[in-house]
Computed example of a mutant assay.
Amino acid sequence: MTQSLPHPRPRLKLGTRGSPLALWQAHAVRDALVAAHDWAPEAVVIEIIRTTGDAITDRALAEAGGKGLFTKEIEEALLDGRIDLAVHSAKDMATRLPDGLHIGGYLPRADVRDALILRAGGALDDLPQGARVGTASLRREAQLRRLRPDLRVSLLRGNVQTRLGKVDHGEFDGTLLALAGLSRLGMAERASAVLSTDAFLPAVGQGAVAIESRVGDAATEELLAAIVDTATGIAVATERAFLTELDGSCRTPIAGLAQVEGDRVAFRGLLLAPDGSEVVEVTCAGPVGEAVRLGAEAGRDVKARAPRRLLAG
């Protein structure tokens, strides 16, 4: 009788939410680690962790506690040592992380733009007067109202498939989703139009997969260093510094995009009124070594110029 060999212990455990997009992201991190270190696929185990944000589908995140609702339970597992790394959508991460945790890096960033999905197809201008568009993002709502104040914008929560289904079934005339998410799920063809960043600025961190780790876990950090993308890290650090200065949460419509070219980083940020009627904009550029300072200064500049009512959220 042949004796079976014991199953090898995993080298790393990754924590993630259980949505199809979150699982795509976790598998992308796993595959990158496996390839970089020439491991067998079973060397990296994916642990699905249900978060508070997953359980809340009937109201806006701002009413339930804001950013962090999609990361809290995963971060607790990371702090407890139940997992070695946490994988998140960068735009879901709070600006202030729990003590003992930090962002270890990002996978190379995907397309940052927003996609418009319309039941009848076409572009934003093709929507009839008073059409109903669903979104859970105050940033998307504010920019949408800025471009088309006639539209009726209503809350639409749920994963990508849920939101698309509600458009398909006629509950909404359209919705907005990150093009990166659609592409990762093999659904890029569902985009009726892709909105330029000039007209429609993305969320801070949009298109980036963030990998969170424990501070001081040198062994895991060394493994992670083989897969993280430097340019994405610089860009998102700039954007998050901007957001931190504005104390950005799900209660305030804020958009920001940094782009790295060579040894320079360029940034553009917006703070909007919820109805899109007012906007404070900032642009800046400088060396990549000063990226975080540039983002923070941009945030302070907007904060100094913004009417108090725009920061009251």
Results as ranks from 00 to 15, higher is better:
266 A>Q: 13
20 P>H: 05
4 S>R: 11
121 G>V: 05
187 M>N: 00
137 S>I: 13
217 D>M: 05
158 G>M: 10
114 D>C: 10
266 A>V: 13
19 S>N: 00
148 R>D: 10
83 I>L: 10
226 A>S: 11
215 V>L: 12
277 S>A: 15
31 D>H: 04
313 G>M: 07
297 E>G: 01
65 G>Q: 07
151 L>T: 01
309 R>L: 05
24 W>S: 09
283 T>I: 07
2 T>M: 06
278 E>A: 15
244 T>F: 04
310 L>W: 02
20 P>L: 04
39 W>L: 15
192 S>N: 09
29 V>T: 05
306 A>W: 03
79 L>F: 04
166 K>G: 01
50 R>H: 12
98 P>V: 03
237 A>G: 09
247 D>H: 15
146 R>D: 10
25 Q>K: 12
55 A>H: 02
5 L>C: 06
56 I>D: 03
149 P>Y: 10
221 E>A: 15
142 A>M: 10
97 L>N: 00
235 A>S: 12
58 D>M: 10
216 G>C: 01
267 F>L: 07
196 S>H: 04
226 A>P: 01
239 E>H: 08
257 L>G: 02
46 I>H: 10
275 D>G: 04
190 R>Y: 09
118 L>A: 13
151 L>Q: 07
268 R>D: 09
90 A>H: 02
261 E>Q: 13
32 A>Y: 03
213 S>D: 00
275 D>E: 11
158 G>Q: 04
125 D>I: 08
105 G>Y: 05
214 R>I: 02
27 H>M: 08
82 R>I: 00
182 L>T: 12
68 G>E: 09
71 T>D: 14
144 L>F: 06
40 A>E: 14
294 L>Y: 01
53 G>L: 03
273 A>G: 07
42 E>P: 07
56 I>W: 00
295 G>E: 01
159 N>S: 06
242 F>A: 07
228 V>D: 04
208 A>V: 02
262 G>S: 13
47 E>H: 14
262 G>V: 11
56 I>Y: 03
309 R>D: 03
95 T>M: 14
160 V>K: 05
271 L>I: 11
235 A>E: 14
77 A>D: 11
188 A>T: 08
16 T>A: 15
215 V>C: 09
143 Q>E: 15
131 A>T: 05
4 S>K: 06
182 L>M: 10
220 T>V: 15
57 T>Y: 05
206 Q>H: 11
196 S>G: 13
162 T>H: 06
235 A>L: 02
